[in-house]
């Protein structure tokens, strides 16, 4: 592998559509880059914005939110609520200095394994182009909270 930057993405999937799309991509042996790690939720409506912030804080360079297509939510309409939160969250992230492109919402039905794989591949490349997330790292080499340690050192000094 070349020296290129390998971003890490966290993907949130819903149990009914997009997680099954990921399963289908697997069953059909559709390839996508290994840079994404998926978390299963019951519904995209379960996505607490704090999950996204948490992923970024843990060092993710991008977060992909996926859910059922509008009108096809297993819980009737909860993906619309995910959409609202996503739009608001993108604006919030921007104000926090995170490029809004690092957060993406994609609809993928249980039949759309190929589409999901394509969206993942595209986003990995987009985030790769953005470079590492320039957010204070939570961890330093010693496994400590970098900022907190810095502040602690300042205080002791």
């Amino acid at each position: 592998m070349s020296e290129q930057f390998e971003p890490i993405l966290v993907g949130f999937t819903c149990n009914w559509c997009s997680y099954r799309a990921a399963d289908l991509a697997g069953t059909a042996r559709v390839k996508y880059p290994p840079n994404i790690r998926l978390v299963r939720l019951m519904c995209s409506g379960r996505l607490d914005p704090a999950f996204v912030i948490k992923a970024f804080a843990e060092g993710a360079d991008g977060v992909l939110i996926t859910g059922c297509h509008p009108g096809e939510c297993h819980y009737l309409e909860q993906n619309y609520k995910a959409l609202r939160r996503y739009l608001l969250l993108r604006r919030t992230l921007e104000q926090m200095g995170v490029e809004p492109e690092r957060l993406k919402l994609v609809w993928a039905s249980a039949a759309e394994g190929v589409k999901l794989a394509h969206e993942i591949s595209t986003m990995v490349e987009e985030v790769r182009a953005l470079g590492p997330l320039d957010w204070p790292r939570w961890w330093n080499e010693n496994g400590f909270h970098a900022v907190v340690e810095e502040q602690a050192q300042e205080v002791t000094a």
Binding site: E6, I8, V39, F51, K54, E58, A60, W139
Partner: peptide, 16 residues
């Protein structure tokens, strides 16, 4: 559970 899972997922190779 979700927070813990995210932490676990990022435990490997969080340094690029």
């Amino acid at each position: 559970q979700i927070f813990a899972q995210i932490e676990g997922l990022m435990r490997v190779n969080f340094q690029h």
